[in-house]
Amino acid sequence: MRTLLLFFLLSANFLSAQNADYRFTISDSKKLRSELETAIGKDMSLRDFTIGDITADKKPDIIAIGSPEDKEQHRKIYLFVCESGKKFTLAAVNSTLIECEVCGGMGVGDPYQRTVINKSYFSFELLYGACTKDFFTITFRYDKERKWWFLHKDVTESYNCQEADSGEITVKTEINKKEEYGVTRFENY
């Protein structure tokens, strides 16, 4: 019974934090960085942020990447949706998509490369490996009917540096689309 009560309390805290409202100053990147650092909490440092319309409502939304103090833990991705003016809501959090800062392999280190927003799509680019490298682009799309973000596709490009000695590098590309995953919500990827 005690475990069940603890579960409900933790779930309620997560849900209330996830729907919290924030005020961000988009026009001043230095001030915005400070505001985002406060919003993601003292146990995280802001690794990166990207501004763009991820809900197809012509308002600037924010995707923030937080890094924990322990460099061997996964990063968190925060989706802040603009409600109006400077008012934003934390709509979703993903704690598994971007691995730790040292998980990219000997040649890479930090696998996180960048976040790209294009209309109601957003992608995370990740690089892993030493000589054999894998470059992942994981893309989500906003579904207006369901009012949420779902996996659209993921692309893996692989190559081996030893091929450079022969003068020709072959890049193998594998594209997986949402039909192959079923329906995967952003926070569950």
Rank of each mutant, 00 (worst) to 15 (best):
D110H: 10
L97K: 09
D61W: 06
G52L: 00
C103T: 03
N94E: 07
N118Q: 15
V108T: 15
T115C: 11
F122E: 02
Y78D: 01
E99W: 11
F124P: 00
E125R: 09
C100R: 08
I62H: 05
D57Q: 14
Q73N: 14
P68R: 09
E69G: 14
L90N: 08
F80H: 07
S67K: 12
F124K: 03
C100K: 09
V102Q: 09
K71I: 06
A56Q: 09
P60I: 00
K86I: 06
A92H: 08
S123H: 05
G85Q: 07
L126T: 01
S120M: 04
I65C: 08
I65E: 09
G104A: 09
C103H: 06
S84N: 14
F49I: 02
T96V: 06
C82T: 05
L79W: 05
I51S: 02
R47V: 13
T115N: 09
P60Q: 15
D70H: 11
K71E: 11
C103N: 06
Q113V: 12
I51A: 04
F80M: 10
E101F: 11
V116S: 12
V102W: 10
V93D: 02
T55K: 14
I65G: 05
Y112V: 04
K59Y: 07
V102H: 08
K71P: 01
D53Q: 08
F80L: 12
P60R: 10
L90R: 13
S84F: 08
K87N: 12
S120H: 10
Y121C: 05
A92F: 03
E83P: 00
A91H: 03
D110S: 15
I98A: 07
D48F: 08
G107P: 01
V93K: 04
Y112A: 08
M106E: 11
L79G: 03
L90W: 02
F49R: 01
A64L: 04
P111T: 07
V116C: 00
R114G: 04
A92Q: 13
P111Y: 06
F88G: 01
R75G: 14
G52Y: 02
I98E: 11
Y121K: 15
V116T: 13
D53R: 06
I65F: 05
F124S: 05
L79T: 11
I62S: 03
C103I: 08
Q73G: 00
S95N: 13
Y121L: 13
Y121D: 14
Y112N: 11
G52K: 01
R47P: 01
C82F: 00
I117C: 06
D57V: 02
L90T: 02
T55E: 14
V93I: 15
E72G: 02
R114W: 05
E125M: 08
S123P: 03
V93W: 02
G66I: 03
C103A: 15
A56F: 10
C82G: 11
G66N: 05
L126C: 03
I62R: 03
V93F: 05
Q113D: 12
C100W: 13
D53C: 09
P111V: 06
N94H: 08
E72A: 10
S95G: 13
A56K: 13
K87H: 08
E83W: 00
H74W: 05
D61Q: 06
L126N: 03
E101G: 15
M106H: 04
Q113E: 15
I63F: 04
I117E: 01
T50L: 06
A91F: 14
